[in-house]
């Protein structure tokens, strides 16, 4: 299992990096989304992998045995990260839309004429 999670992170990162190096806004946004997945899975996996041990405590148990549950902390961090990366993607999308409408093209790089202006 560890191997395929690591491979997933690797594939998502590669795809994300390749896409953010493209020259138009839309692939870059896709790339950022892809990188967000990769980073979230990466962060999540720092708590190590476990199956069937969700960090939801048994209601009836008197004492909590921490070895029965997976690490909840990375999950809490990733949860907010997912929501924040949505906010970031949304801002990015609107900025690229605005840039396209104002500049009449959706290129990422600033051309020399635009730089001078």
């Amino acid at each position: 299992m560890e191997l395929i999670v690591a491979a997933t992170v690797g594939v998502l990162t590669s795809a994300g990096i390749y896409l953010i190096l493209r020259l138009r806004t839309f692939p870059v946004i896709l790339g950022m989304a892809m990188l967000s997945y990769a980073v979230n899975v990466f962060l999540f996996s720092t708590g190590r992998l476990a199956t069937g041990m969700p960090p939801v405590l048994d209601h009836h148990a008197k004492h909590v045995d921490p070895s029965l549950y997976t690490d909840p902390l990375p999950q809490a961090l990733v949860l907010t990260a997912i929501v924040i990366s949505f906010g970031m993607t949304a801002v990015l999308v609107l900025i690229s839309l605005g840039a396209f409408l104002e500049a009449k093209h959706d290129k990422i790089d600033i051309s020399d004429e635009e730089a001078d202006a």
């Binding site: 690797g10 590669s14 990096i17 190096l21 996996s45």
Partner: peptide, 23 residues
């Protein structure tokens, strides 16, 4: 770009794999 992407992906994957196997 493909080479850069694969390099980074490979690095991140091996990093992930390395710490997943350690307590």
């Amino acid at each position: 770009d493909g080479a850069i992407a694969l390099g980074v992906g490979g690095a991140v994957a091996s990093l992930t794999f390395a710490f997943l196997l350690r307590d």
